[in-house]
Write a protein that binds this DNA or RNA. Sequence first.
DNA 1: CTTGCGCGAATTGTCGGAGTAATACAGACG
DNA 2: CGTCTGTATTACTCCGACAATTCGCGCAAG
Lengths: 249, 249
Amino acid sequence: MEDSEGSIELDLVAAPARSSGRRLRGAVAQQLGIAIVGGAIGPGERLTGEIEHAALLEVSRSAYREAVQVLAAKGLVESRTKAGTRVLPRSRWNLLDPDVLAWAFAGEPDPGFTQDLFELRAVVEPAAARLAAIRRTAEDVAALHAALHRMRRHTLATEAGRAADRAFHDAVLQATRNDALISLSASIGAAVKWTTQYKQRLRALPRDPIPDHARVSDAIAAGDAAAAEAAMRALVELALEDTRRSREA
Amino acid sequence: MEDSEGSIELDLVAAPARSSGRRLRGAVAQQLGIAIVGGAIGPGERLTGEIEHAALLEVSRSAYREAVQVLAAKGLVESRTKAGTRVLPRSRWNLLDPDVLAWAFAGEPDPGFTQDLFELRAVVEPAAARLAAIRRTAEDVAALHAALHRMRRHTLATEAGRAADRAFHDAVLQATRNDALISLSASIGAAVKWTTQYKQRLRALPRDPIPDHARVSDAIAAGDAAAAEAAMRALVELALEDTRRSREA
DNA sequence: CTTGCGCGAATTGTCGGAGTAATACAGACG
DNA sequence: CGTCTGTATTACTCCGACAATTCGCGCAAG
């Protein structure tokens, strides 16, 4: 391959950024994943030609195949002999997979899908707050307070502040002691991250989010399930309203 | 490999059942996945020795590596140079991934996790029924009626009946027109499938599930959001009670 | 003319081996 | 006692070949 560069200038796919810690196949998977989730490839039928596609990306067939395995594991593609590997319909995708979510928000996020994620939060998080209020331990309350404290110090304008925001929501899910909900935490957290970032990008946030979060924290600490649920519902709905307003603005 | 069988009788891992349509690597991934999710390997640190482990399973390194990539994509393991591939803590697993769910229920299902899944259903499905009542189309109502009809004809004692049950719940999620919830449908559906099967296995179902489902269907068809949410909540809670009772019996 | 069967070609699947890169660990050094 | 460097181990990448599968086409039989 040491002499192929002279004749072929097919860098159009942009050399996979392997600087990102991820191994080469991870970069290939990310690249293909973004192309698929972003709609650049389309849920019809593509990716034919294993060897030629690998050559196009300037990686070996092994690396390309392992990347495709990752995509197949997330339900994005399906490989069958003779028929090639085709992109599956969107309904088969594991949209809540953290990687898939990251890929979905790598480009311009789809407003409709962002709305869907907020709706999911509106369904899950209030119920989670209710369970958390019933089952929280002293450690859970401490984690909530710590996250809230970090949110106060930094604002949502800084990455540290947004990380604290995610830590807060994660702490609520953790306190439910429900493995299925905790697993959703990774997805919810990603949704919170991307939507908050999206909201921030358009204009400075118009409202102080601290009181909303404090109300949730206090209700959970007090063990008041109904109040925790109501406070969290208000929080999510206000966040949704902010996002919608900033999109229309 | 044609002569290796004579000296080595290490079939203890049981020849990967590749008859199941799945390719060899899929069988390896399933085998490892069940071992991990089932707790046979433990979230500590294992799977060291890529070549030797591949030899143990009597597959090539390529197939073994691709299987490991699948597991890594689902958050079960993490590979790092020099340190080997270690099983990640349970909190990092994508428990809602359909494959992971299937592996979790391949052996004896963990009662605690089953309880967690029911709690997830209790959170998501009533809210989904509410949204479905608001947004359902004529096609959605037809799908609900068709599933209900199939449930009436076959019972939950037959596979066809259980498939109809899953189709019913899937139709509700579909009617929400929310991609995130629809994506959860695959997980919820798996949870419904396994828990129903688990319930069935212990003793004949003590209650007729048709009226509960019919109430949900009618409320959604009528566009009555509150009634749909209440009916679905009752359905899930009764199902949970059945499961709990059959576990204690 | 229609229908069924089998052969061939194209594509993914599987294999084994060689060389590279990264890193945990230990030992030397300040 | 802390830091640095070297080394050994492990996964990562690449390569080329062969096997398995299956779709499509042509041929033959009805």
